[in-house]
Write a protein that binds this DNA or RNA. Structure first.
Lengths: 188, 188
DNA sequence: CGCATATTGGAACGATCGGTGCAAGATGTG
DNA sequence: CACATCTTGCACCGATCGTTCCAATATGCG
């Protein structure tokens, strides 16, 4: 049971990410993290550092997992800004509908708990949200939106994304979330 | 210091509500609640019961505080459904802009932490969200929307409300939030 | 094989968690 | 004044928190 690592580091990080995602930072106790990852406390600490560091690595893992999906959805040539919005939100809807991952969105859960995070965690959360906004803005510009339009629509799409996460956590159905997303994509 | 109550029960509840609002249920420790209310542990427990009961009473206090404002904004005769949406979201914007209360929205913070709440807390949160939706739907019907339109617009306005709370927590400015609200009210 | 290295499970740390018990004392009633 | 009632401050409870330490041991290298 000892000598060389007995587990897959990336898979363990993926599971830890799910624990933070489901429970939020405060309620993601070390016991829940060890149980969720299958690792012992020693392995957790020696591999990822303390809870705050593991949380930040989970956030980065979250970005690495879903960033390519959003990137692909945004990359294709889009006939209009609203098509960009629809494509983006569809990725979010697909993620939320995935029964293999917790409800909502790790980034949104973390954002609402910002006062409970340390300075590094807060900074990572804010940086990731800003990154999403910038990515959206870029894609909207590429789809023919002017600067002001792109900035406003990026902000509103980010907002819709957050709202889908909250409603999902509150128990709203996939159909209701799809209704919200469709309305958000119905823009001039 | 003893004999008859040395504090105003309602004011203490208001302050406890602010603690839950700012920190969320998990991070609202008894110590933070005693410090925030100015009460001793004995007074807290004898007056409000345990933490879960105090949380539920804080949620109800939240509703009692802001329900009348939303009710008033929704009651007036509105020329169109979109006017209803604008009036509703303006109340939310005003609350968020109030420097005397924490960022975001107690109900939204609680909704994202639903897995951390006990069954009673979850039920109250869900019931309150449903209540908001019903109130919105009613006002939209009164403003001339047909049933399907009212249902969809109520859902979307609820969603926008949640998104404003999340963005507020993430540090977005009042102007940015107003932009999101204005776009949400710009509907057919 | 022998030894340094790396990893593991588990015990243990002090701090904090939510919650309870109780003595002290101020108040209202007689 | 005497007494029952109520509230308060504070100590204290077991449980859990995040974190550290350490003995045990499997591995890779010489």
């Amino acid at each position: 049971m000892v000598g060389r690592k007995q587990f897959d580091v990336d898979e363990a990080l993926r599971r830890a990410m799910h624990v933070f995602w489901r429970w939020g930072y405060s309620e993601a106790s070390i016991d829940r993290l060890t149980e969720g990852t299958g690792l012992g406390r020693s392995s957790l600490y020696s591999t990822f550092g303390d809870k705050s560091a593991l949380f930040r690595k989970s956030l980065e893992r979250y970005a690495q997992t879903y960033h390519p999906l959003y990137d692909q959805a945004l990359s294709g040539p889009h006939p209009s800004p609203s098509a960009v919005v629809a494509a983006y939100l569809q990725v979010t809807l697909n993620r939320i509908a995935d029964p293999a991952v917790p409800d909502g969105c790790l980034l949104t859960v973390s954002a609402t708990q910002i006062p409970a995070l340390d300075a590094e965690g807060q900074a990572v959360v804010r940086a990731m949200i800003d990154g999403v906004r910038a990515m959206l803005e870029q894609a909207l510009l590429a789809a023919g939106a002017d600067e002001q339009e792109a900035a406003e629509l990026a902000l509103c799409t980010l907002a819709t994304n957050k709202s889908l996460a909250v409603l999902s956590r509150a128990g709203f159905s996939d159909e209701e979330l799809a209704t919200v997303a469709a309305a958000a994509a119905r823009v001039p």
